[in-house]
Write a protein that binds this DNA or RNA. Structure first.
Lengths: 178, 178
DNA sequence: CGACTTCCGATACTCGTCGTATCGATACTC
DNA sequence: GAGTATCGATACGACGAGTATCGGAAGTCG
């Protein structure tokens, strides 16, 4: 059943943690693959054997960090509010926001990375939101643009996550448009 | 009155045009300073003599491309709507959106570039909006986060500017929150 | 006109990073 | 034991940002 050859060592989680920690401590630009590998106690070749490029590694670390979205709430508005506060909190976690903004920036001029980002990170939440809210794809995509775009813009312009008061304003604004 | 020595040739506009054209044709990542210089018919040293870094050049080209914001309208809501449609149109112009998203991304992990971006590009519009709308700084900054963040997120995720229908939705959502 | 100053274009260079290639060693299957 | 796939280490190629240098060009001032 198991394929022949030496099995892969289970260092994925270690590499993910080292990725976010390195981005948090040094910033996205200084978080080179060499440094991430060193922080994880792993050879650089091991990383490139598992992820084809740096952007894919960051995206995988983000997917792992986000996990499934909590789509709780009695009515659609409450559910959307919960989701917005959840993603705002995640983006505020150390390294997550910087990594997200960095990989997003890289994706702008890299169609391949853009596909990875859309498929692996955005699409699962988009589909779940479509079903949970009963809204068409185009409308859910618009909400995602507003929420994630706003949070990342704040992060990019100030280097700090959005404060709670502004997250409240964002929740109020988006839920009222529902 | 005039300083001694050879005067600077007036190639700033040529370089700005070449910058946006190169970004539009090749994308932000492939728009190297060498290529921009070649497209402008100028030596790379000439560019670095006028702008200290690539990000500063892109920002200057954006400031030149945007120009002053039209803050017309009878009431604050109409004025804000005009401003949103204006910035959406500008970001949709060839090269502008990609350059904006690119320099924004670079700014996330580059505090120096972040300062340039805030001071040269965001602050003039922020101050003008504060006076025109009569709203406090924090609130105007929130609106800028929402509008620009949303437009850039759409641009980054799809590679295409936001369609008019969604811009309308953005205008409705933001003006209602005013 | 001639000394001086500043800009231009061309070229070469340093440095850092991504991603690839190579190789001996290791861990597992059959 | 033969075969296979991974590991760590190291070296390497490619490429772009930014710097240094230099001869020449275009001005100003005496």
């Amino acid at each position: 059943m198991a394929r022949p050859g030496r099995p892969r060592s289970g260092v994925d989680d270690t590499v993910f943690a080292a990725t976010l920690r390195t981005v948090h401590e040094l910033g996205y630009e200084r978080a080179t693959v060499d440094r991430i590998a060193a922080a994880a106690g792993v050879a650089k070749t091991t990383i490139y054997r598992r992820w084809p490029a740096k952007g894919a590694l960051i995206t995988a670390a983000l997917v792992d960090a986000f996990g499934p979205a909590p789509l709780d709430g009695d009515d659609p508005a409450a559910m959307l509010a919960t989701a917005i506060r959840w993603i705002a909190g995640k983006i505020g976690e150390p390294g997550v926001g910087a990594a997200f903004a960095g990989v997003f920036t890289d994706a702008v001029s890299d169609p391949q990375l853009r596909d990875i980002l859309r498929t692996r990170l955005q699409d699962p939440y988009r589909i779940a939101l479509q079903e949970a809210l009963g809204e068409p794809e185009q409308r859910v995509l618009f909400f995602i643009d507003v929420v994630v775009g706003t949070l990342l813009h704040r992060m990019g312009m100030t280097g700090e996550p959005m404060v709670d008061a502004d997250v409240d304003a964002l929740v109020a604004m988006v839920t009222r448009a529902l």
